[in-house]
Design a protein around this nucleic acid. Structure first.
Lengths: 217, 217
DNA sequence: ATATTTGTTTATCGTTTGATAAATAAGATC
DNA sequence: GATCTTATTTATCAAACGATAAACAAATAT
């Protein structure tokens, strides 16, 4: 009895509607959710799904692309590496935005579901995070701590691990909120700022130790 | 053609065998894995599972209990709060052990699967982490930074968030390794030590700002 | 040896579930 | 307004799946 009583949508609109509802549906039920239930939720019959997607897996693949490829901001890397701006401000700008993207039930749950389903779905996304956020961040950490650039001394796995851990604090907050349904700090910006503060005060003492250690070991 | 060709095990042994194999099986396939496949993996028939567990869900519940209740060390909280020992050493002792528990494919994957299945399974475990690790850690952070104890100034959600984030770095490392199958720092102890160093150098400047801020706000 | 108990298998039921083919009907074209 | 196109539905299949009941067989007791 709603507004969308219209039947016979254009293929373009119907497809978008299916994907949009499938994102919410799979985020709720997991990828094990039944196509019949999804169809009911959309208000169409189940076979119609197969007019638009060859298989359930094809629909899942499309859902994944829509959620992750669509929400990545290309300028994050540029901001992160703009040395005219203090690193704290760069991190604040990038990760306040990134935190807003993460702070989304569908995003977090489909990220985790995709991980459990197999490596293939997440591979490209994780490569992107590493190449455009983690490694650039390591480079900036080196610069900040007045240490050799990665060209002179290659990044060690311990350094990458520290950057991943920083990044992970934001992911883990999303997991706590959207998978475990536990209360998290309500002021997202404050949480980001705190994480950045702890990180910026913390890594400059640890990083040189790692570099001198790896030279010895 | 293995060693365990013996049929007709004692109920006790058979049950343990089923649970043990189910842990590995569900960690692999997710909770959607078929009981028939599980039975085949064990080398028994599928109906026999139902002699030992009333339903698939009952088996899953048992799997969860075995993985999480069984591997928690009661003395972690005691170590964490033993102020005769420097905080760095306390954290090192607790989280090197915790990291060893986490660094297990079954542990991480079942943690995540349980989260996706619903809140009920993880509720008790998360309460335990908060009560026995996170809140005690916040208390020690206050003490370390020479700030009022939680009795005088209640813990703010921002403080808890910082402690959860520290904790989360270890969980996230497990997720990267066991769910995303990306290479992580190989020396687990070094990774723990680095995370602790960054944290210990980082939080003492941020914490007072939070407390003065929350008093004002 | 025979009888009894019980761990295990065989056979099977009733749904659920992804997927397909044919029929229908809404909208566009002439 | 008749014809054509195609979005959508109806009907249905075949396999997957959790679960149950009865039959079987390995120990144990008598």
């Amino acid at each position: 009895m709603g507004v969308n009583e219209k039947k016979r949508l254009s293929p373009e609109l119907r497809e978008k509607q299916i994907v949009s509802e499938a994102i919410a549906f799979f985020a709720d039920q997991g990828f094990g959710g039944q196509t019949r239930e999804l169809a009911k939720r959309i208000g169409i019959t189940q076979p119609l799904l197969y007019r638009y997607f060859a298989s359930k897996d094809a629909l899942i693949e499309r859902v994944y692309q829509d959620v992750f490829v669509g929400r990545w901001k290309e300028d994050w890397q540029a901001i992160l590496t703009e040395r005219a701006i203090p690193l704290r401000e760069r991190l604040t700008r990038v990760y306040r935005e990134y935190a807003r993207v993460i702070d989304n039930r569908e995003w977090v749950r489909i990220l985790i579901l995709a991980g459990m389903k197999g490596e293939s779905l997440n591979r490209r996304y994780l490569d992107q995070v590493r190449d455009k956020l983690i490694e650039p961040l390591c480079r900036e950490m080196r610069h900040e701590a007045e240490l050799p650039s990665p060209e002179d001394v290659p990044l060690s796995s311990q350094e990458l691990d520290i950057a991943w851990s920083f990044h992970g604090t934001f992911i883990y907050r999303g997991i706590r909120k959207w998978i475990y349904n536990v209360p998290v700090e309500g002021d997202a910006d404050a949480a980001v700022d705190n994480a950045i503060s702890v990180f910026l005060d913390g890594f400059p003492k640890t990083l040189p130790r790692i570099l001198s250690g790896s030279a010895a070991g």
